[in-house]
Simulated assay, not measured.
Amino acid sequence: MPVLVLLPPSETKAEGGEGPPLDLDRLSFPELNPVRRKLADALTDLAGDPEASLAALGLSPRQTDEVSRNARLWSAPTTPALRRYTGVLYDALDITAFPKGALARAQRRLVVASALFGLARADDSIPAYRLSGNTNLPGFATLRTLWKPVLEPALAEVDELIVDLRSGTYAALAKVPGAVTVRVVTEDRQGRRKTVSHHNKAYKGKLAAALAASRAEPSTVDGLARIAAKAGIPVERTGQRELELLTAE
């Protein structure tokens, strides 16, 4: 059984790209296209009113460039999803350092959970955009209401062992029964563990890189833990489908 690693997106995204404009029919998970189109059209329409866009997206007046990105959704150049998203997790993942074989495995195994696209495989070509998982667009119900009815069935049909590294905001858009979850923790002198916040994304990025690049095809939670350990990432199995990544923070 192959493994699929479900990543959170990032607010920050690389500019530009060399791919043609967005074509939903070329994206993975085509069953998500009706919601993708509805949201993309809503964002471009909303961008016609910059003040309303800033308010709806929770942005400051200094972030009007984000509104301009949304205005160009259907015409802007695209780039593969793993090169579009930036920030702490994606810096730690460092897809640009993958050799050819590891990159091919990463393209099969990595999927980004997106407020706009629902799910985007590593090599799906997408434009820069701004939409967070907790945004409420004018005239729409919550994103969870839009995505849950289509995302949960799409994820239920995935044959791979899913490792869910999504943040809470994106995990709320759709449940993934049977997925392996990972909690990044630190331990005090009394042996008590607490969830890490500051370096959470960096550690998840490193774990995603190890799982994506490995030549092994883990089919169990223990198999995932062995890959992590081989990469020098200390993880412990704490439940049937739960792992804890222990850090020195």
Score class of each variant (00 low, 15 high):
M1F: 12
P2Y: 07
P2G: 04
L7Q: 00
P8D: 04
P8T: 06
S10C: 08
E11V: 15
T12A: 15
T12N: 15
A14H: 04
G19K: 02
P20K: 06
P20D: 06
P20T: 01
P20G: 09
P20F: 06
P20N: 06
P21H: 08
P21F: 06
P21D: 03
P21N: 01
L22P: 10
L24H: 06
L24D: 03
L27A: 07
E31R: 10
E31Y: 12
N33K: 01
V35E: 01
A40N: 00
D41G: 11
D41Y: 06
T44P: 01
D45Q: 04
L46D: 00
A47V: 05
A47Q: 01
D49K: 00
A52D: 03
A52M: 13
L54Y: 03
L57V: 07
L57P: 05
L57K: 03
R62A: 13
T64H: 09
D65G: 05
D65V: 11
V67W: 04
S68T: 12
R69S: 14
R72L: 15
A76T: 07
A76R: 03
A76Q: 08
T79K: 12
R83V: 14
Y85W: 08
L89A: 07
D91C: 04
A92G: 05
A97G: 07
F98S: 09
F98K: 03
F98M: 05
L110A: 08
V111Q: 11
V112D: 13
V112K: 05
A113L: 05
A115T: 02
F117A: 01
F117Y: 14
L119N: 09
R121L: 09
R121A: 15
A122W: 07
D123N: 14
D124R: 09
A128G: 12
A128T: 02
Y129Q: 01
G133R: 03
T135C: 08
T135V: 09
N136C: 14
N136V: 14
P138E: 04
G139W: 00
G139A: 02
G139T: 03
F140I: 01
F140Y: 03
F140A: 00
A141V: 09
A141I: 08
T142S: 04
T142N: 00
L143T: 00
T145N: 11
L146F: 14
K148E: 13
L155Y: 01
A156V: 10
E157W: 11
V158E: 08
E160W: 08
E160R: 11
L165A: 08
R166D: 08
R166A: 02
T169D: 15
Y170M: 09
Y170E: 10
A172W: 09
K175T: 13
P177R: 05
V180K: 07
T181W: 09
T186I: 07
R189G: 13
Q190F: 12
R192H: 13
T195C: 11
H198T: 07
H198S: 04
H198C: 12
H199R: 14
Y203C: 10
Y203F: 15
G205W: 15
L207Y: 06
A208V: 07
L211E: 11
A212H: 08
S214Y: 03
S214W: 14
E217N: 11
T220K: 03
D222G: 04
D222E: 13
L224I: 13
I227P: 14
I227F: 08
A228T: 04
I233L: 13
E236K: 15
T238G: 11
L243A: 12
L243G: 08
E244I: 09
L245P: 09
A248V: 14
A248Y: 11
A248K: 14
A248T: 15
E249I: 13
